[in-house]
Nucleic acid binder design. Structure first.
Lengths: 202, 202
DNA sequence: GCCGGAAATAGAACACGTTCTATAAACTTC
DNA sequence: GAAGTTTATAGAACGTGTTCTATTTCCGGC
């Protein structure tokens, strides 16, 4: 089914690229993706345009990322990691898990809403991903989960906390999608998230 | 943006087609869609193949459903309505909302899992839909919400119950997608749903 | 029955994701 | 530093969703 799997996976993992030139190419590709997505959303991330902008050949792009969905989900992971790092450098205010989770949620949500096109591109790729992008999806899911468990407590999360974090993640994503597709306003999203977290943590 | 909107909407609404021939065409199209999706999932629902199988021209197909996503989401609505009707004829067992919701959830989930390809096609279309399919999406969302609120109580749902139903719907969909993309087993899904409903209703 | 406009048809055409081919450049290893 | 291998390049080619065109069929009002 996928003859060159191991090589491709190695390239996708990203941390372990043989040469500096390759790490650079990869970065240029992700940057181009984010730039195009920020400007025009999912549809504007056209593989030929990404290749052009990143100054690589189309074939090279496909060697690094086996599909548009992989590309966008990997970029989402990159963005979430950035957000996570920023969050780690912040002291999250609030006395209860409820307050702290809401703070984190609000912060990230507003961050994403500041760049609607990018958010649209990434959430659509994320939810459209098929089995072949399972690894990337799991990576993002774990990032999200840990984001919320960290907000609940500094200690290692309990199973229940993980479950709560997953539920919050699901609701969060679904509301982000609703916002992106104009079926919900930013206020709707904030209200629903607040309500959800209340149901789960109060 | 969409010059022929009103006409298209009329056709899409489906209940109000001018002639019997048109209602028939529409039904043939949805049937063909479901048949193809059942056999090979999202990718097998090719517009030319749907048109062929429904015995309509490609242009006609597009007159009735402006995109593949509209087509699949409308089919999902049809299927959910069927499930809802079946459920309405059933007396849902269980003394608490918790038990009753779990029953409904388990029933529908197993129903969908009996036809994995169809489920894959529909959930992917649903989550990939963009703003232009907002109406269809809302229709399906409402169906889902009412499914769960009905399980909670026979009376008109409170705001809190609606909120809970929405959260359950979000988690349900997300787990269905995880199952469809092989990131979760049927058991995983059942466990997570149970856990979620417990958190919300116990 | 006939006419005019709407709807349906067959099929070409186009756009973009993806794959393939042939060639060139960049590396490894000796 | 030359030979062989891997990686990158340019661009053609292909598949499928979507749109367009020209023609034909259908349907409601006369």
């Amino acid at each position: 089914m996928s003859p060159s799997k191991s090589r491709t996976d190695a390239l996708m993992a990203g941390d372990e690229l043989s040469s500096a030139a390759q790490r650079e190419r990869r970065k240029r590709i992700v940057d181009a993706t984010i730039a195009l997505a920020s400007k025009g959303g999912f549809d504007a991330v056209q593989m030929r345009a990404v290749a052009d902008r990143a100054d690589v050949a189309l074939g090279t792009l496909y060697r690094y990322f086996p599909s548009k969905v992989h590309l966008l989900v990997s970029s989402l992971a990159v963005e979430l990691e950035r957000a996570q790092e920023k969050m780690d450098r912040t002291t999250v205010p609030g006395d209860s898990p409820y307050e702290r989770v809401l703070f984190v949620l609000g912060r990230i949500t507003r961050g994403l809403q500041r760049n609607p096109h990018l958010t649209e591109a990434m959430t659509r790729a994320f939810t459209f991903a098929d089995a072949s992008a399972g690894a990337e999806i799991d990576r993002v899911s774990l990032l999200m989960e840990s984001m919320f468990t960290k907000a609940m407590s500094d200690d290692a999360p309990t199973e229940e906390q993980k479950a709560i974090a997953r539920v919050i993640g699901d609701v969060w994503l679904s509301n982000l999608v609703a916002w992106v597709t104009r079926r919900a306003t930013a206020t709707d999203v904030a209200n629903r998230l607040e309500l959800t977290v209340r149901l789960l943590l109060k």
